[in-house]
Design a protein around this nucleic acid. Structure first.
Lengths: 144, 144
DNA sequence: GCAAATCGGAACGAAATGGTCTGATTTGAC
DNA sequence: GTCAAATCAGACCATTTCGTTCCGATTTGC
């Protein structure tokens, strides 16, 4: 129910990379300095992000990273899926079988929840993450 | 991003317990036989559920379990929270601090996602899980 | 041709989870 | 009143996944 730290780091890293998009290429070390994350951790995150096609990496001296797509075309759902795979709360969706083959009356309901979660993540583009505050009035409104 | 197996088992167990609610008390062994889960696992799940106040357990010979509330008043959100704690995708909500104290522009957006996820889980009561199929037409509609 | 700088993948350690087991408690029967 | 059966409750151990770190492959600039 809680996404992994790597996914969280990936979101922060992409948010930092979005600010450097206009200025051209950046590096993993620079992103680590800005976000405060350890350099090796950022490297691992960058590897997954570039493997998923969200970042374009150029090797060699003078190389660096840059967004593969415009920041407006990248959402939270893309970043989370790049690091953690498909967005699904249960494994019985892609694997098709639970541990037991009982007539699971719960299984049909998971796609509804998954779609809701994915929709919430897909509704926040990367451009919005660069802003200071969201548009919603209640920041602590978990029970809203 | 994927809930733990225990939480999944808890949902299945509660769904099975809801069917026995009318007939009075049931036992962990009986629930294990119906769901196909290992008996000790069901016992562990039952312990967490009763500690959270969702199940009422009676010890001793002839004892057993029963729902503490009507099935209509128990939702997926209650079950998940009973096993996994508060529904939050990131730890920076309750802990208030990320690993680094950078001006995190991503943090303000998480409550929005958390509320959406919690709303999706709270919208499915336990009575609906006992039914064979959901009301939604597309079972595989993850991209809906 | 050499050297510096960068990304990429692999290996190690740690933490959380899942599963199992044994013990404490209570009721029912004799 | 005593014994025995049945049940839940908590503690222990193995496994897996996650997180971190390190080293090698590759490319450009001088």
């Amino acid at each position: 129910m809680r996404l992994s730290n790597l996914a969280d780091y990936a979101v922060v890293t992409m948010s930092a990379a979005a600010r450097h998009c206009g200025g051209g290429r950046t590096s993993a070390a620079e992103l680590a300095a800005e976000t405060g994350l350890p350099v090796p951790t950022v490297q691992k995150v960058v590897s997954k992000l570039s493997a998923a096609g969200l970042l374009r990496s150029v090797r060699g001296a003078g190389g660096g990273l840059q967004l593969a797509r415009p920041a407006a075309a990248i959402t939270l759902a893309d970043i989370v899926e790049a690091v953690e795979g498909p967005i699904a709360l249960t494994a019985c969706i892609d694997g098709d079988e639970c541990a037991v083959d009982h007539t699971c009356s719960v299984k049909p309901h998971w796609p509804v929840v998954n779609a809701a979660l994915r929709g919430a993540l897909a509704g926040i583009p990367l451009t919005q993450l660069s802003k200071a505050a969201p548009r919603e009035p209640n920041l602590t409104g978990i029970s809203a």
